[in-house]
Design a protein around this nucleic acid. Sequence first.
DNA 1: ATGAAAGCGCTAACAC
DNA 2: GTGTTAGCGCTTTCAT
Lengths: 329, 329
Amino acid sequence: MTDSGRGRPTMKDVAAEAGVALKTVSRVVNGEAGVAPAMAERVEAVIERLGYRRNESARVLRRGRTASIGLVIEDVADPFYSGLNRAVEDVALRHGSLVLSGSSGEDPRRERELVLTFCARRVDGLIIVPAGSDHSYLRSELDAGIAAVFADRPGGLDVDTVLCDNSGGARAGVAHLVGHGHRRIAFIGDDPSIYTAAERLAGYRRALGEAGLPYDGSLVATGPAAQAGPVLTRMLSGDDPPTAVFAGNGRITVAVLRTGHRPALVGFDDFELADLLVPGVTVVAQDPVRLGATAAELLFRRLAGDRGTPERVELPTRLIPRGSGELPP
Amino acid sequence: MTDSGRGRPTMKDVAAEAGVALKTVSRVVNGEAGVAPAMAERVEAVIERLGYRRNESARVLRRGRTASIGLVIEDVADPFYSGLNRAVEDVALRHGSLVLSGSSGEDPRRERELVLTFCARRVDGLIIVPAGSDHSYLRSELDAGIAAVFADRPGGLDVDTVLCDNSGGARAGVAHLVGHGHRRIAFIGDDPSIYTAAERLAGYRRALGEAGLPYDGSLVATGPAAQAGPVLTRMLSGDDPPTAVFAGNGRITVAVLRTGHRPALVGFDDFELADLLVPGVTVVAQDPVRLGATAAELLFRRLAGDRGTPERVELPTRLIPRGSGELPP
DNA sequence: ATGAAAGCGCTAACAC
DNA sequence: GTGTTAGCGCTTTCAT
């Protein structure tokens, strides 16, 4: 070995071993033109023999671009977000970029920490599913030239944003229940401090209004999915109970199913096996893959130099009738 | 602004603006001892005002350690692997490390490419779910001081490895069916070129042997999950059809369920809602979170300097009876 | 076609 | 306590 001491061989080591200048090795490694084939071959042989691998940190330090992007989602283990993650990864791969991903756990402080960590690693851009609404901490990063895209929810900054049609989807879901004769429809959803939850609740109210049905606060419950079961049980044991339930997200839909009660049900978010339950679970489906892919494409367009005004894309949702939403009152 | 030209402010900029030496800024940024409180405060104010953020690439270049690890799994969107991913992330967070993750898609070439990309970024260590069995390309990386752990399957190198008890789990699952009176038990699994699939098939054969049942090749089918449904239908329409099925992985279990046939069924891998189907689906459960956490802990032990001989950990599986495995012949 | 020198932003080692 | 210097491994610029 010709390693200068410990650790990995460097371009310098390769150059010395091959008896050429460091710059020639650099040219070979980067596939730059202007190297005689014989020379290139000799250098490549040494690279192979020494197990040389370019030090990306040094390269980044010099060039300024890292060919990596940061992705902040709520939880990499959640099927919705892991689908989004995969889509982002695929688009990044096509653009020769790597993805750093992290879970914010719906905690704005953790989100901020992750984003700043990514920025310290000089990612070229960020895709963020905002946990909070205050993104002033991002200002200076944007000024420094980092591109950012918000996905799934709007953030507190005017940058490219990709959303799903939450209120429209909820409205369609509730209207579906109305169409099947229901007049007492419960809404069980996330805390409305979360954007998507608030939008879905708004869609619920709108559908009621359009059907000429009164809004009854005793039929509306918001909070963590863990409480959805007990809440439903309580509602059903009251007088004038609901005959149908609109569940504000996938976890709540499952929680409702676990209670064993079988009111008519439409859930926001599709999930695997929804079609295999009896009856099948009618859902309003989002498309996490398209969400991720769209956000990534938008980001790479910025990285390619697009300086147009920030875009706001809204993706449609799709009602999938499977049985549970078609039960009579 | 005192930025030296374009882009982000550097320590030099902060030092100039604060009227101190660069090293003092470095001390403040890194929380090193030996800085007068008043001085630290002044520097921090400038940092805040300029939006200074340490350049991690430069730091890495100088220090040699990146405080990041690479994770190569089959698919970040698969629930099994995304659970593993999350567990790795959590352990890494506790160790102040970041996770680079990528999907190999079961392609050895892509695995190699990902690993080498991670190495070029000088990750401190790697957790790999091997797609192939030839890991000679990793040799030089290990020699260079990068630590590696194989998870879920053994790789072609003697490094720390965390596996699940695949054959024992399959054996227990098949024995369960035998215990409920079945004598004609089909095995539908992945291609045996995949380690876990081969192990599970071995467990199946062992259980048959222990029950004194003959091995019947016409009851065994291996291949992609997409073919599991048609294969089962064919088996069931033959003469002397199986009365029970052991499904070799989660996707195949679901494929079997989708056929509408309802033989007695035990599946390898737990999945959400398995308990809500009718009958509930009896499974042999692995623990992806524990798998990921164990692999990560092993890796960080190495990074902390452990030079002991490579460990091989086998995690237990758990049979969860829910109804489908208890159906009579 | 090849090479020499400068310097990216930071930390380590050593003054003062 | 604070500052100076050297250099991590690479790309850039400019020479030859």
